[in-house]
Design a binder for these strands. Sequence first.
DNA 1: TTGTAGGCGTTATCAC
DNA 2: GTGATAACGCCTACAA
Lengths: 347, 347
Amino acid sequence: MAKSADQKRKQRNGGTTTSRMRDVARKAGVSVMTVSRALNDPDKVSKEMRQRVRAVVEEIGYVPNRLARSLSSNRSNVIGLIVPSIRNSLFAETIKGISDVLSGNGYHLMIADSGPGLLEEEEAITAFLQQRVAGLVLHNTSHTPTAIEMIANAKVPVVENGNLTAAPLDSVVSYSNYEAARAMTLHLARMGYKHIAFVSLVRRENDRARERLRGYLAALAELGRKQDDALILERPSGFSAGAEAVVNLVETAPQVDAIFFAGDVLAVGAVLECQRRGWSVPGRVAIASFDDLDMLRHVNPPLTTIRLPRYEIGRRSAECLLDRIAGRATERVSLDLKFEIIQRESA
Amino acid sequence: MAKSADQKRKQRNGGTTTSRMRDVARKAGVSVMTVSRALNDPDKVSKEMRQRVRAVVEEIGYVPNRLARSLSSNRSNVIGLIVPSIRNSLFAETIKGISDVLSGNGYHLMIADSGPGLLEEEEAITAFLQQRVAGLVLHNTSHTPTAIEMIANAKVPVVENGNLTAAPLDSVVSYSNYEAARAMTLHLARMGYKHIAFVSLVRRENDRARERLRGYLAALAELGRKQDDALILERPSGFSAGAEAVVNLVETAPQVDAIFFAGDVLAVGAVLECQRRGWSVPGRVAIASFDDLDMLRHVNPPLTTIRLPRYEIGRRSAECLLDRIAGRATERVSLDLKFEIIQRESA
DNA sequence: TTGTAGGCGTTATCAC
DNA sequence: GTGATAACGCCTACAA
């Protein structure tokens, strides 16, 4: 008693099987190709066929297999996104922007949290290329040599969106961290602050943090002011770190009259600490922030900050990728989405 | 002049091709299966072969095709996650927990932001089943009938993690929204508050919000207190909404002496508004929150709240799924990760 | 330890 | 408009 092919298949899969196009075709009394066309290219099939196929699909609960489709057509509908920290709330807006565009176009999003390390980013890139993603969005703008080579070989469209780098892998959709930090520093100087401190995020393996510090220093130079190392700190993100930084600066460098925090969470931590200690902001010390968390508008006093188009960056990144994939665009794009200084009461 | 198969393939793909196992095999002078084994099951191959294969892989930059692998082996290494709002920072912790477990096990994460709608969730489920994900994590615990049926047919392991529902689709890893809200209400009563208001999140299509309100009402009943509709509000999440709610309650129901907010952002908005107005917290009105955003510890006064094991929920959800996939567990799991009331100064 | 044959579920291509 | 056939790149099953 020889087993039929279908029986073997059932055994192989542990007693259960998913229905295939072939099953739909058999039941509808048409060929597999007609089913394929009825589903993916309805116009190429007669109305009658379309209805007959749809009916069977409904009836047996057929779920098309996109893995097979992608393999066969050499086209995937998945985009890979790699962020240094999914915990960081600022990525949420960007992800939402990407996600909105993709789901409107039948694409899906795979997300990897690489941590701060470049090597981990490389691993995530490898994994995504193995999944044959149709495109990549990277937040980092620096990468390992291997990662760069792999991306080049894969010929996958890539958008970097953490910083408006001058030397992108492919396309870049972002704002200039350097210019933003420089602009805020000049702004504070224009407001009359003489001793502007800068609290940096950890710069190791973080090109954005390095660019922000560079912007601050460039502004000082333009102003003809000397860099004062007592006014420059580096702290990991966090409310407590911000609180600790403001206390540290006021106590060890009492000449300080303004503090520019390179991260919003740091700035909020600082302003809340000032409140607790009864230090007037901006009376005793002014505080400025980077990035426009919703919260900044609600603390007392509301924080002067730099608004960054996070959602827009996500949206445009995804659009840019889809354009490349569809062949609508062939040129690399370098899109500066700008920033905006929001003047509130803290500085 | 007949074209070779490889020439045709090159033409089909627009002049470029990715290398295949076959190419590695040819160059290494071994069979395709040896390459496959050398890569996926190194122990089953002699040391010499392993080295020869690895060398060629390096040399030509071969990137395995996981789509083909998944199709052929009927096993995928992708897990799908559907959340109602990626913007909501509370998901970040859970996602991180999932992501940490998955990447340690060679799995990857696809994320869909379905919005609050059940129909959109159904669409996302369909899409994931088409991608033949190995498992699903859903935040919602209510679903459309079609979604339920599709999941049953697909025989994919599923973990729901937004609420400890009594009737899960499959497994559930969460805490009880009902019990948490009930516990906090009783706690506030024990502290001596007589007129405890409740600010709910929008309940439409949100089972968690409904459960929280139910918990509050159950506690009132246990306390022998009458439900006072003037003390129950429903608001969308947001700092402004929280600020507006506290003002509304204090002005229209001046007997209120404590407000329990069903969302952390609302509570922070409220406490900041009290600060601005010089209303003493908890002197004029006590404030309690739900969910332990880092920020709650840093506002003035620090907020009494319910700590939820968000990261742990993610971690255990993923572990549960992987256990099911690997066949290590066959039983449905119903895991209560509990909550904890954090007593601070706001109530 | 290594290789051969056949199939995974779909689409491209060409014939009717 | 519809169908037959051969890929897509890999793995399972079995043979040597």
